[in-house]
Amino acid sequence: MQKQSTSLWKLFSVFFRIGAFTFGGGLAMLPLIEREVVDVRGWVGKDEILDIVALSQSVPGAIAVNSSIFIGLRLRGVIGAIAAMLGTITPSIFIILIIAHFFTQFQSNPILMRAFSGIKGAVIGLVAAAALRAGKNAVVNRYGLVVAACAFFLSVFGVLPIVWIIILGGLSGIVYFRAKGGVA
């Protein structure tokens, strides 16, 4: 655990960058967070990031904000959590303040609208890339494949709220690994 070694400014600036490039909400930021936090800085392990995402989806609030609080808290305690959280939300606050000021010009600017059309396409690909990566890390046997497929269909067809899908997955893990006699 590298407590104290990460500066608050580093936490703020890394999450500022994540916040500034999170389009499409929620899980679209996962590839970015994974790259910055897992690959580049090694603040969090590959499996742990999936746990943090699951926990972030199970408590109130936006996933991007919640996961930044989790990671900040782990690296530098409460003050780190606040630094990471402020980093995540500062870009949106600035951008919305500017837009709220120039609302009508913004809506009718064709160049911006075309740029966003391109970004929307990329977001689909980014989320698919996050799914591929999460699948590689988490789906290691037939049980995992069945659980992932169930979660996929329950969510796509809007059968259950996401929190309930996560809770069911947790219960299935408890039942399955008890029958099997342990996780490893």
């Binding site: 999936l50 699951a54 989806q57 799914a131 988490a138 049980y143 497929a149 069911l168 893990g173």
Partner: peptide, 18 residues
């Protein structure tokens, strides 16, 4: 055990999000 069950759920949820 719980998180071993939740991790594949996250993978499925991310795929669904796409």
């Amino acid at each position: 055990s719980m998180f071993a069950g939740i991790r594949p759920v996250v993978a499925g949820l991310v795929a669904a999000a796409a």
